[in-house]
Design a protein around this nucleic acid. Structure first.
Lengths: 115, 115
DNA sequence: GCTTGACCTGGAGTTCACTCCAACTTGTAG
DNA sequence: CTACAAGTTGGAGTGAACTCCAGGTCAAGC
C-alpha cells in the first residue's frame, strides 16, 4: 500500500509518516521501482501501537528506542518488556493524579454552582 | 513576598513566573518602590490552580482566557464555570481513554511474559 | 500526448512552553 | 564601603513534534 492509503488507514498524515521514518519511529519502508514507499499490514499494527504509546505521553525518542530494540530481534524482548512495564507504571500514576485533579476541578465547579 | 520566595513556594521558576505574567496567566504583579515584584498569598492559590489545569493538559492560552475572565469579576462566573465543566468532561474522557490504552499495554506486557 | 494528482527529497518554518542571556539596578552580610 | 546575591527588562535561543515548501519524478484518465 502506498503512503496515501497508509495515511488514510492509520490516521497519520503523509508528512508525519515520512518524519517518523526519518527519525526511526518507523522502519526504513521499502520502495517500489519508482521510489514510492510500499507499506504493509504489519506497519499498520506497528503505527497503531506507536499511537497508543504517544497518546499515553511517551516521547517519540522513547518510542524510537523501543522500535530500535524491536528491529534487533527477540534478544531484546526482555528490555522491551521492562520499558513497557515502566511506562505502564508511569501511566497508572498519571491516571491516579488525573483523578485527584479532576476532583479538585469538580470542587471548583461546585463552588461556582453554589453562588 | 518577592519572586524568589514565590518561586520556592509554588515550585515554578522565576523565569517561568515572569513569562506567565507576560502572557497573562498571572495578573500584572505589583512592584515595590524599587521595581521588584510583590506576590501575595492569593497568587499562591491561583498558581496552584494554574498548575492543576496545566497538569491536566489545558494549554496556557486557555488558562490565560480563564484568568482574563477571572479578572473581569463576578459577571463572568458563568462562563468560567462552563469552561471548567468542558475541561472536566475532556479530562474524564481522557482518563477513560488512558485506561483503555493501559489495558492495551498490559496485554502487550503479557505477550512478552508468555514467551 | 497532456494535464492532473500523488509521490519523492532536503530543508526551512511553525507552535508551544519555556529557558537563557546581557546589561543593568537593588538589597544584604561582613 | 564593598562584594555579591537577587532583582529588573527586552529579546534571543531551545527542544519537541510536526508542517510546509520548492523543485523534481511518475502514473492514470481524457
Amino acid at each position: 500500500m502506498n503512503i496515501g492509503q497508509f495515511a488514510q488507514r492509520s490516521g497519520v498524515s503523509t508528512d508525519t509518516l515520512r518524519y517518523y521514518e526519518k527519525i526511526g519511529v518507523l522502519r526504513r519502508i521499502g520502495r517500489n521501482p519508482s521510489g514510492h514507499r510500499q507499506f504493509d499490514a504489519s506497519d499498520l499494527d506497528w503505527i497503531a501501537f506507536v499511537l497508543r504509546l504517544k497518546a499515553t505521553g511517551m516521547p517519540l525518542a522513547d518510542i524510537r528506542r523501543y522500535a530500535e530494540l524491536r528491529s534487533q530481534g527477540t534478544a531484546t524482548a526482555g528490555e522491551r518488556q521492562a520499558l513497557l512495564e515502566a511506562h505502564a507504571r508511569d501511566l497508572e500514576a498519571r491516571i491516579a493524579e488525573d483523578r485527584r485533579h479532576l476532583a479538585g476541578i469538580h470542587a471548583k465547579i461546585d463552588f461556582y454552582k453554589r453562588r
